[in-house]
């Protein structure tokens, strides 16, 4: 093959990334937009180990080469992830794009990545010598800056099976289909006996990476739903102080305002309003 490799096993692929200067090609839906004529692609679609979805006691394990459609159609996929995938581009793109590609692309606007942050997902990375597991928060060091060595590939996304019970998901885009997120929000929580026992939120497309602030969410944990109105004021103030949206195609002021509106809506959902 000219300008590419199409290995059939992960072992072969890891040998290629160790010795050759290649760009891993997941679904190609981002790579082909910025399409150049130089370089070499490492095509991953023929590797069965990257296309599997399985469950163990701790994790739902999504192969990095699974397409958005495959993930959305799997019965074990959490509802929030299905909903987020349903808002990605259009069916023909969801049939090509892979979750590993969405992560490896390094964008804070990646819609599946927002959900992986909110669910505190882990990533299994491998090179020819072995593998390591990292948190998705630690994996993103900045825009397009990843904790991924040139000889490593993203192999699996590990979603903890224990996750909060309820969720809200919002994507703010210019149109319903084929829209890049101007801003996106995922919020999950659990209520037990009238008390918030878990809360996890994340914002996409506002800073250089997805924003996940567990220390702010911790303010709500232990709060009786009846006290949410009062504690919510403190929560919003902490978020207001912590969020620093960047100016881009969308202004920082607009992003900040929408973030705060979405958080107010999230609190209202939690109160059952």
């Amino acid at each position: 093959m000219v300008n590419g490799y199409a290995p059939q096993t992960l072992k072969e692929a890891l040998e290629i990334v160790r010795h050759k200067d290649v760009t891993p090609y997941g679904g190609g839906t981002d790579l082909m937009v910025a399409h150049g004529r130089s370089g070499q692609y490492l095509f991953l679609h023929r590797i069965p180990e990257l296309q599997t979805i399985s469950e163990d006691d701790t994790y739902l394990r999504l192969g990095a080469g699974c397409t958005f459609t495959q993930v959305a159609e799997h019965p074990a996929t959490p509802a929030i992830l299905k909903e987020a995938i349903g808002r990605i581009a259009a069916p023909a793109i969801r049939n090509l794009g892979t979750i590993g590609g969405n992560i490896g692309n390094g964008s804070a606007k990646a819609d599946s990545v927002l959900v992986f942050f909110a669910l505190d997902a882990k990533l299994r990375l491998a090179n020819a010598d072995g593998e390591r597991i990292v948190s998705i928060q630690g994996f993103y060091k900045g825009r397009k800056e990843l904790d991924l060595a040139p000889d490593e590939l993203i192999v699996e996304v590990l979603l903890p099976r224990k996750m909060p019970e309820y969720y809200v998901y919002h994507k703010v885009g210019a149109r319903a289909a084929l829209a890049i997120s101007r801003l996106s929000f995922a919020g999950l929580w659990t209520v037990e006996d009238g008390i918030i026992t878990a809360c996890a939120t994340a914002f996409g497309a506002i800073e250089q990476t997805v924003v996940r602030l567990p220390e702010v969410d911790a303010l709500l944990v232990g709060t009786p739903v009846a006290d949410l109105e009062r504690v919510g004021v403190e929560y919003l103030a902490a978020y207001d102080a912590a969020l620093n949206p960047i100016d881009g195609r969308i202004s920082a002021a607009y992003r900040k305002r929408v973030c705060m509106n979405l958080l107010a809506g999230f609190l209202a959902e939690m109160r059952g309003a």
Binding site: M1, N3, G4, Y5, A6, Y25, G27, G28, T29, L31, M32, V33, Y41, F43, H45, R46, T69, A89, A90, P91, A92, I93, N95, L96, L178
Partner: peptide
Amino acid sequence: GECGACSVILDGVLVNACMVAAGRAYG
């Protein structure tokens, strides 16, 4: 990948052919 005019069916599913590098068609 935004207009769908190049749509083809690849392994039974709809894809945008402009978003597919030739090597992705392997097999």
